[in-house]
């Protein structure tokens, strides 16, 4: 890890319509670091992810990637700079096949280890269904496509928003074990979850958000369950 963190947020504030969703967020993610971002529904986690990819405009503060200010960079240029998102609810392109969805991810043409072969190696199930329509896939398979689509851009920073949403526990374990192998080689990631258990297991850092603010941050083992629960619910 160099002196400049991979991602650095300073005093970030953002609105969702008239509603202020993020207040003065400061956050550093180092190269190779995996941060778990937990918090209740509506705490601002997804808005934070959306502001990182440029879908939600930032009202104040700054976002830097490898020391470069990208606060005003248009959403469609951010993937070229190395930020990829696995969005909440997966949001795959339903009129595209599995493979076409993955190829869309490769649009930026960034070099790196991830290509169709590598994705199919990680998720062999997808190789069998490469020509399938998205709607015929199970929820877990769709989540694999969403992860694969993000990886295809060979990002420096992977943002995962609620990977476990709507999936059976056994599928969630499978997805997280894949994620563990993905970040093993030094890819930085922010993993947003409502489920504290899953997220903390693969993270080097744990952050808890409540009402648009980061209310807790540090190494996961620093905090007891009570600490986390207290900041999660604000009691």
């Amino acid at each position: 890890m160099g002196d400049t963190p991979l991602l650095s947020l300073k005093g970030l504030s953002a609105f969702y319509g008239d509603f202020q969703a993020l207040f003065d967020i400061d956050l550093d993610i180092g190269g190779g670091q995996v941060a778990a971002m937990v918090g209740a529904n509506g705490a601002g986690k997804s808005t934070l992810m959306q502001s990182l990819v440029g879908l939600v405009a930032v009202k104040a503060g700054s976002i830097s990637l490898s020391g470069e200010d990208i606060t005003r960079v248009a959403a469609h240029h951010r993937v070229d700079l190395g930020i990829a998102l696995v969005p909440e609810g997966r949001r795959l392109f339903v009129s595209l096949t599995v493979e076409e969805n993955l190829l869309i991810g490769a649009r930026s043409g960034r070099p790196g280890p991830w290509n169709l072969g590598a994705i199919y190696g990680l998720f062999p199930m997808l190789a069998e269904r490469r020509k399938a329509a998205i709607t015929t896939l199970s929820g877990g398979q769709q989540q694999m496509v969403a992860i694969g689509r993000a990886l295809m851009s060979n990002p420096d920073l992977l943002l995962c928003d609620e990977l476990s949403l709507g999936l059976a526990p056994i599928v969630v374990r499978e997805i997280y074990s894949a994620l563990r192998s993905i970040v093993r080689d030094g890819l930085s990631a922010i993993v947003v979850e409502q489920d504290i258990q899953q997220a903390t297991q693969i993270a080097d850092r744990l952050y808890c958000m409540r009402q648009g603010r980061i209310v807790l941050g540090g190494a996961p083992h620093q905090f007891s369950r009570q600490d986390i629960a207290a900041s999660y619910f604000g009691v």
């Binding site: 440029g54 959403a75 993937v79 070229d80 649009r107 689509r149």
Partner: peptide, 12 residues
């Protein structure tokens, strides 16, 4: 299919 996600994928 999804304008916002297409943008995230790098489409102008």
């Amino acid at each position: 299919d999804d304008q916002a996600m297409a943008q995230v994928m790098g489409f102008n």
